[in-house]
Design a binder for these strands. Structure first.
Lengths: 242, 242
DNA sequence: GACTTTTAAATGTCAGACAAATGAAATCTT
DNA sequence: AAGATTTCATTTGTCTGACATTTAAAAGTC
């Protein structure tokens, strides 16, 4: 772990990068304890606050965790699927909200990826996944549900569908695509009729998943995508006219 | 922007979260300047180093950027697709390397997602995308290519395929799936015969994309997945016997 | 031997200072 | 007056040194 004294980059950035490289290369392994802040500041010939800023950068990416007290210190963190999942959702959400991504673009990406999961889900889903999907469909039919709650349930339904593929890597990759859409979906108001159509499609998809019918599941998702885009287009058109 | 004085969480964590929330909620908009470190330490009633640690956490996630000098300061950063892309690759790579994800699981996820891109790519790819694919296929046929260079070219080929869908959200989502596989692929040694088979499949896929034949492209990817998994299985079996 | 107390080590926080970069205002030159 | 130069104030980057807090292990006590 070395830093370049001639570099113009901030010291804390360089130090963070040096440690990060050591982790990625395997020089530092999971759960290994890093040298103490005092030792690091000695090693890199910088002050303790500078080392600390570097460590905070790494902590923000869940690459390390710190523990106080004797035998405490900074430890290389095992990046859990959960951590990666939430990072992915945050990044995707901000990306969509800050870059004027059109509804259609985001929607297309989301459903294209989701259709990739459907065949696997149709084959492997557990009873639990199916039960979750049915429960969410039921919830979506409840009268008096707010639009936000309806979207929440929609996400939960799709998440169960994705998780049904029993591939954690796939679930993690899809997290951003599905959940980051929610703020966009929340801009839409759903009429009772819209909800009925969507819930009907959800049922068709759940039926296909239950029957292990891969292509029916994919078709159901395709129809749902078309429906969602049509709905959004209507809402935006109406809003533009006003 | 407020912090809870009764919370047991570290102050810098709380402050980072408060600012992050302000950004997500839209209270702070893109390119807006945050208060200076002195003002923030005053506002939150903490010292400047503590504020700085909080800001470094946010900088590590590309949520803010800082600039020195008069009229400098911390600014809300527009999260670019590029930034998100590289974050995504880092996270995915670490996730795979730290969690004993099987080659098959990662491979399945990758090709499932890539097949989702193929139909779109077959319709929308520009001449550029196609040219890149052809160029990489040519490179893959060069004798004397190292295994690492072969894998590099493989990634470039698939990236062009994905980018051909002309959906930046899709490209971003796929980044992790495709590039994070590279370290796993690098564990495999490719014989000349293996390379010929892979390159042949790449050609089939490129041909399908060029012809706008959606289903042929998907089939080609399916065959490539099967081939890759068979190859990996052979390598691992041979390694286990030794 | 089990419980309590002490202690040392580590991170978390603070205060104050100086260095370096940078844009803007003030000054000087032509 | 216009342009070039200098000065200056502001802000982040870094350093020093100190104290607070947490925590596990060592020492002490019954």
């Amino acid at each position: 772990m070395k830093i370049d004294p001639n570099s113009s980059a901030d010291l804390s950035v360089q130090i963070a990068q040096a440690i990060k490289d050591a982790i990625i290369s395997g020089e530092l392994i999971v759960d290994e304890r890093l040298p103490s802040e005092a030792e690091l500041s000695d090693h890199f010939q910088v002050s303790r606050p500078t080392v600390r800023e570097a460590l905070k950068r790494l902590a923000a990416q869940s690459l390390i965790r710190t523990q106080r007290g004797a035998s405490g210190g900074a430890f290389v963190n095992r990046l859990s699927f959960e951590d990666a999942y939430s990072q992915q959702v945050t990044t995707s959400t901000l990306l969509l909200s800050m870059n004027e991504v059109s509804f259609d673009t985001a929607c297309e990406a989301r459903y294209a990826l989701e259709r990739a999961c459907a065949p696997l889900s149709a084959e492997r889903r557990s009873a639990d996944h199916l039960a979750t999907m049915r429960a969410e469909i039921f919830r979506q039919g409840q009268p008096g549900l707010t639009d936000v709650a309806f979207c929440d349930s929609d996400v939960a339904f799709h998440r169960a569908l994705v998780d049904g593929a029993c591939n954690p890597v796939l679930s993690y990759q899809l997290a951003g695509a599905v959940e980051a859409m929610q703020p966009l979906m929340n801009m839409i108001t759903f009429t009772a009729r819209d909800r009925a159509v969507i819930t009907g499609l959800h049922t068709r998809i759940a039926d296909a998943i239950e029957a292990g019918d891969r292509s029916a599941a994919v078709c159901g998702l395709q129809d749902l995508e078309n429906e969602t885009r049509k709905l959004a287009a209507d809402v935006f058109a109406a809003r533009a006219k006003r």
